[in-house]
Amino acid sequence: MTITINGREVPVPADPRISLLDLLRDHLGLSGTKKGCNQGACGACTVLVDGERIVSCLGLAIQYDGRAVTTVEGLATAGELHPLQRAFIEHDGFQCGYCTPGQLMSAIGMAREASRGLPSHVTADLAATSVALDRGEIAERMSGNLCRCGAYNGIVDAVAASLEEADAVREDQAA
Score class of each variant (00 low, 15 high):
Ala44Val: 00
Arg17Pro: 00
Pro83Gly: 09
Ile5Arg: 03
Gln85Asp: 00
Leu58Pro: 03
Glu137Asn: 06
Ser56His: 03
Ala174Lys: 13
Ile89Phe: 08
Ala132Lys: 13
Glu165Tyr: 07
Arg135Gln: 10
Glu165His: 13
Cys37Ala: 11
Pro119Thr: 01
Ala124Lys: 15
Thr4Trp: 05
Gln95Ile: 06
Phe88His: 05
Asp26Asn: 14
Leu104Lys: 03
Gly74Thr: 06
Gln39Cys: 10
Val10Ser: 03
Ile89Ser: 03
Gln39Val: 11
Arg25Asp: 01
Arg135Tyr: 04
Ala61Lys: 01
Arg148Met: 10
Leu23His: 07
Ala41Arg: 11
Glu171His: 11
His82Trp: 08
Arg112Leu: 11
Glu113Gly: 04
Arg116Ser: 13
Glu113Tyr: 12
Asp92Trp: 12
Ala128Cys: 10
Gly74Val: 07
Arg116Trp: 03
Met142Ser: 02
His82Gln: 02
Tyr64Met: 14
Leu84Pro: 01
Ser19Lys: 13
Thr2Asn: 12
Thr123Gln: 09
Ser115Ala: 15
Ser120Val: 06
Leu163Asp: 07
Ala175Asp: 12
Ala151Pro: 05
Val55His: 13
Ala166Cys: 08
Met110Asn: 00
Leu21Ser: 06
Leu48Glu: 05
Ala160Gly: 00
Ala161Leu: 08
Leu60Ser: 09
Val122Ile: 14
Cys57Met: 06
Asp65Cys: 12
Ala124Ile: 14
Leu126Trp: 08
Ile18Cys: 09
Gly66Phe: 08
Gly36Thr: 10
Glu113Leu: 14
Leu133Ile: 08
Val72Glu: 05
Ala14Cys: 07
Met1Pro: 14
Thr46Pro: 04
Glu9Lys: 13
Gln95Glu: 09
Val156Lys: 01
Ile62Gly: 11
Val159Cys: 08
Cys45Gly: 01
Leu126Thr: 11
Ile155Glu: 00
Ser143Cys: 13
Gln173Trp: 11
Ala160Gln: 14
Arg135Thr: 12
Ile155Ala: 04
Cys57Val: 05
Val10Arg: 08
Val12Arg: 03
Ser162Met: 09
Met142Arg: 07
Asp92Lys: 11
Asn145Trp: 05
Glu137Gln: 14
Asp157Val: 04
Ala14Glu: 15
Arg112Lys: 15
Cys45Lys: 01
Pro13Leu: 06
Leu21Pro: 03
Gly29Glu: 06
Glu52Asp: 13
Ile108Asn: 00
Phe94His: 10
His27Lys: 14
Glu137His: 06
Ser56Asn: 00
Asp22Met: 05
Ala174Thr: 02
Thr2Cys: 04
Glu164Gln: 11
Arg8His: 15
Leu104Ile: 14
Ala87Arg: 10
Glu113Trp: 10
Arg112Val: 08
Val122Met: 09
Ile18Thr: 15
Gly59Ser: 13
Ser19Gln: 09
Thr77Cys: 11
Ala128Tyr: 10
Gly102Gln: 01
Thr2Met: 09
Gly79Glu: 12
Pro83Thr: 02
Thr33Ile: 04
Val69Thr: 00
Arg148Thr: 03
Gly51Cys: 10
Gln103Ile: 12
Ala124Asp: 13
Tyr98Lys: 06
Met1Tyr: 02
Val69Arg: 05
Asp50Met: 11
Gly32Lys: 07
Cys45Val: 04
Gln173Arg: 15
Ala61Val: 00
Asp50His: 11
Leu133Cys: 14
Thr33His: 00
Arg141Gln: 07
Gly136Lys: 13
His121Asn: 14
Asn145Phe: 00
Thr71Arg: 00
Gly109Leu: 02
Gly136His: 11
Pro83Trp: 06
